[in-house]
Nucleic acid binder design. Structure first.
Lengths: 203, 203
DNA sequence: GGTATAAGTGAACGTTCGTTCACTGCACTC
DNA sequence: GAGTGCAGTGAACGAACGTTCACTTATACC
């Protein structure tokens, strides 16, 4: 009985903390770090500003917590791709998982793309470390590819991740445009075999 | 004589206005719109905050003016590519011009990548119009390409621009890494003929 | 020389920012 | 049932924000 109440209470606590984290992710991802105030978050969660500081010591630590959760989620999605799939197909599946994480309604992944580490000097070191941990997954995926001589794998990786992250600026969910599957498919196909027709293949 | 003084005075005026514009471009591009204050700009220009408002009616109008100048500069750089060059080579040259504009010391072009129109509702309409005007150049460049059936030209354009703009997050000038020429070259080459070696070209 | 014009000053305005803190309410222990 | 511990409150803190305005200064015009 005592344990049950304790558990219920802890659940309640965690719910508030999780809700703060979720709202913070939405706002940091949609409007950026500087443009989001602690009061914006508190208002949307339905608590007072003081309640935020019960769970997080400062605004920048809240950001780090959001970043951490974002990296965890998007990393989980990319890791779910079976290792048995051939390299280029695996990269395509990872690209699609990355896109889907970027556009799920939670918005945790968006923060990683939107908030640049140097924007928040007090948290820059942590943010860089978290980013690096995630990008290592794509590094491994790209290392497994058969790449023609003359192509730099690092540039190839940055080209793909850059294009994927930039979708955030124009992609509209549910609109008449392409879905994440076809975007990932074409992006990887272009990098793999090229988009030029026979005439344009040699310059 | 009167005309000479008039000219000198106007030159002085324009110098202050131009300096405000330049510093604003640096700060908006490096730290974002919300994280840059009018006082930051005034301090670096060496004038008081009131002086800013002599030349620009509000912070968001200052942003629009910076955006306008940024679009003008990067557009000029891309337009300088000779029309006689074959389509894929022209795209590569434009990509390099885009990168160079992004990394010149002025930082006007950086603002266009960094500040998303929706971030500043009062200026969103103007910013979108200016962006659209610039992107139309790349649309024309991509329309001129020989593209294999099954590839969406719009996605192809967004993939290239996205990857180019994302370089801002990692590219370090003068470092040991690739220069803008080789980045543009590989990005376009990958999209044109693919990066896969013989083994990986068919899935 | 007197007057108009416009750049730039410096101080102030009301608001919002991140953060703090004494306090309340409630679930738990002994 | 007194005492402990912690989530959450509500008001306040000083600082910084965008913006305004009466004013000074310097030049151009008559």
């Amino acid at each position: 009985m005592a344990q049950a109440r304790m558990a219920a209470r802890q659940r309640g606590e965690e719910q508030t903390r999780a809700r703060i984290l979720g709202v913070a992710a939405e706002w940091f991802g949609a409007h950026g770090y500087a443009a989001t105030s602690i009061r914006d978050i508190a208002r949307e969660v339905g608590v007072t500003v003081g309640a935020i500081y019960v769970h997080f010591p400062s605004k920048d630590r809240l950001l780090v917590a959001v970043y951490e959760e974002g990296v965890r989620r998007i990393g989980e999605a990319v890791d779910a791709v079976p290792a048995t799939v051939p390299p280029w197909e695996r990269l395509e599946a990872a690209a699609r998982a990355h896109l889907d994480a970027l556009f799920d309604n939670a918005g945790f992944a968006r923060v990683i793309v939107r908030v640049i580490p140097t924007d928040v000097p007090e948290a820059a070191k942590d943010l860089r470390r978290l980013r690096h941990g995630y990008e290592a997954r794509f590094r491994r995926l790209v290392d497994a590819l058969d790449v023609a001589p003359g192509f730099d794998r690092t540039l190839l990786r940055l080209q793909l991740i850059g294009a994927l992250n930039a979708t955030q600026a124009w992609y509209k969910q549910g609109g008449g445009g392409a879905d994440t599957k076809s975007i990932a498919s074409q992006f990887v196909a272009a990098l793999r075999t090229g988009a030029a027709s026979g005439k344009g293949r040699r310059g």
